[in-house]
Amino acid sequence: MDASNQSSVTEFVLLGLSAHPNLEKTFFVLILSMYLVILLGNGVLILVTVSDSRLHTPMYFFLGNLSFLDICYTTSSVPLVLDGFLTPRKTIPFSACAIQMFLSFAMGATECVLLGMMAFDRYMAICNPLRYPMVMRKAVYVPMAASSWLAGGANSLVQISLAVQLPFCGDNVINHFICEILAVLKLACADISINVVSMGVANVIFLGVPVLFILVSYIFILTTILRIPSVEGRKKAFSTCSAHLTVVVIFYGTILFMYGKPKSKDPLGADKQELADKLISLFYGLLTPMLNPIIYSLRNKDVKAAVKNLVVQKHSTQ
């Protein structure tokens, strides 16, 4: 960064629930509990997909990546949120803020791409079962997963590089629990139009394109399933993609809810709306990672069997 672009702001103040200190202990316990569930659930999924040879398939490889991503995504922000509930002065250095933004932004973009790739895997398995072993071999699905991580990281690097080059010469109070990039950009004392355009393009690429791809994939999947003559055959085919479809609906449904809900026009209700927006944003980052392992465990016989075998093996060794 050039000297002319150096920020005079060396740290940011995260407001969090400063205006509602009576809620901090309650939310600390609630968020810590959710975080522990995320670590346990996704950790178990990673363990069974690695240890059980029956799960060494493209679908479970992508699932293991998704679980690891969810752990990384929540770990990039939740410890900061929990620390804010316990610390009287809720500050974060400029550099740490940039790192936190990079990690959370990268994980979010990576998840969008990964969900699209999981949809392609299900499309190939149901619509082209004879070609599936040839197309979705290890030499293909491993680079696919790796490219989702690289794409998410590259996008985040571009967005955060543009953000940190902005001058921050006045207000350093972020009205959020974490260094949320839109909240940070509001504090810049310079034109942020390039940042807005860049993020708009990124949203089209990392949100719009995967959604369209998933939608088209499931149109073909449902069409193929409906052509299966037996009811049992249709149920079996749908069961192989129902968990992924449920995760997709929750993931994108919460995004649409967050950004599509109407804003309050009542000045007296603005503070409540602001608090609600922050809490919804916070719990959005926890809801999907917490539900993913539960959904895949409940709706997938192979995962349930692998978890049972893991528990049995643990008891037998003890």
Score class of each variant (00 low, 15 high):
S18M: 10
L23T: 02
F27D: 02
V48M: 03
G64L: 12
P143V: 10
S198P: 05
T87P: 07
I160G: 02
A188R: 09
L256R: 04
N172K: 09
P21F: 08
K301W: 06
S281L: 04
D302Q: 14
T49N: 13
L130Q: 13
F28Y: 05
K308G: 01
S297F: 10
A276L: 07
I181V: 13
T74A: 00
R54A: 15
P58T: 01
P93C: 05
P262Y: 04
I250F: 04
Q100N: 02
A306M: 10
S239V: 05
D171A: 10
L162D: 04
V158W: 10
S51C: 14
H244L: 09
A270Y: 11
V173T: 15
V197P: 07
K308W: 09
S51E: 14
V307H: 14
L103I: 02
G253Q: 02
N42E: 10
G84C: 01
L187F: 05
R234A: 08
Y259K: 08
Y218K: 06
Y35S: 00
V196M: 12
F62R: 02
P289T: 00
Q165E: 04
L226Y: 07
K90V: 03
K308M: 02
I214Q: 07
L45R: 05
F177P: 08
N42K: 01
N128G: 07
I178W: 07
D302K: 12
A119H: 13
T246A: 01
F177A: 00
K278T: 01
F257G: 05
I228G: 00
K278A: 03
L185A: 07
P262V: 06
H315S: 10
V142P: 10
C179H: 00
V247Q: 09
K138D: 15
D70R: 00
V231E: 13
L40K: 06
M136W: 15
F177C: 02
G64H: 13
H315I: 13
Q6K: 06
K138W: 14
E11C: 04
F61I: 08
M1G: 07
A188L: 06
V307A: 06
D70V: 01
M258H: 09
A146S: 10
I174M: 08
T74H: 02
A276W: 07
V13N: 11
F61Y: 14
F105T: 08
I219G: 11
N203Q: 10
S77Y: 03
F105N: 11
L115E: 09
G200V: 11
V249I: 03
N172Y: 03
T57G: 13
I294M: 05
K301S: 02
L40H: 01
L130F: 08
S76A: 04
S148D: 07
Q313G: 14
R122C: 03
L207Q: 15
S161L: 09
I192G: 11
A19C: 11
L17R: 03
L279F: 05
V44S: 08
Y141N: 12
E111N: 13
T254M: 08
I31K: 06
T49M: 11
V142L: 13
E180H: 09
S161R: 00
I174R: 12
